[in-house]
């Protein structure tokens, strides 16, 4: 049992503000009093992932600012044609809405997880996974369209050659995150459905006891994926 950790969470009422900050960091054993081990670790993982995505977006900014060749206009490239009418960036807007919807259902899943509602948690996790899979599908469609139009990592028909490299790297890395997220959502949903989190069954890989907190850990990862898309949408597609 993780009694030591669990007990300390309900310990004496802790000071807030800067005093609490100093007290937490100078205290024995654990600095993160409001977060269990798993949550603290996923946050640190997400922090490192933030740096990776930051570096990608930074490189994109650097090549875009330093090239003397005009940057292709996303409004001219990412076009969805419906019934002969062209809608610039519509597909990207739909992708954004899909991802936000998935974030919403994920937040609900975490909420119902803490209420120990096994059925609703599972259903919401599966809905989130379905949204995620739809997003990946839309992205595959987007990639196919662009590749057929001649976009390559080393060139494209519209302007600066670096456009393709940035596009494939950034959206590809993000899409990989979504794909991994969908896989883990399905695993988490299965565990929730089997009642692993009610019985505190041990995980097959980590051998750590399951708990509905696992759903929140999953949620943090998934919201992060949505968060990254917010930045990609603004800085790559709209800029």
């Amino acid at each position: 049992m993780e009694t030591a950790i669990t007990d300390s969470l309900e310990g004496p009422k802790r000071a807030g503000g800067w005093q609490g900050f100093a007290a937490d960091w100078s205290s024995d054993q654990r600095a993160f009093k409001s977060a269990l081990w798993g949550k603290a670790m996923i946050w640190i993982f997400l922090l490192s992932d933030t740096f990776i995505f930051s570096c990608f977006l930074l490189s994109y900014m650097t090549v875009r600012m330093s090239t003397t060749v005009p940057w292709p206009d996303p409004g001219e490239i990412f076009i969805l044609t419906i019934g002969g009418t062209k809608y610039p960036l519509l597909l990207i807007a739909i992708m954004t809405m899909i991802l936000i919807s998935s974030s919403g259902t994920m937040a609900m899943a975490v909420n119902f997880g803490y209420r120990r509602d096994r059925v609703k948690t599972t259903a919401l996790l599966l809905t989130t996974a379905a949204f995620g899979a739809t997003f990946v599908g839309t992205q595959a469609f987007e990639w196919t369209t662009l590749i057929l139009e001649g976009v390559r990592p080393w060139g494209n028909p519209w302007g600066a050659a670096q456009f393709g490299a940035c596009f494939f790297l950034i959206t590809g890395f993000h899409g990989t995150h979504v794909t991994i997220g969908v896989i883990f959502l399905l695993i988490t949903a299965r565990k929730a459905w089997r009642g692993d989190f009610d019985r505190h069954a041990r995980g097959f890989f980590t051998s750590r006891k399951g708990d509905y907190e696992n759903v929140e850990t999953m949620g943090l990862y998934w919201h992060f994926v949505d968060l990254v898309w917010v930045f990609i949408f603004a800085l790559f597609y709209l800029w």
Binding site: R14, G16, A31, F32, A35, A40, I44, L47, A107
Partner: peptide
């Protein structure tokens, strides 16, 4: 972009209710 990111981190990721020790550890390095 910033408002959306703020909402996701604060509410969906529950950062608004975490203790400052965690908040600063995660938000200051970026």
């Amino acid at each position: 972009m910033v408002v959306k990111a703020g909402l996701i981190v604060a509410v969906f990721m529950h950062m608004a209710w975490e203790r400052l020790a965690l908040v600063y550890a995660i938000l200051v390095p970026p």
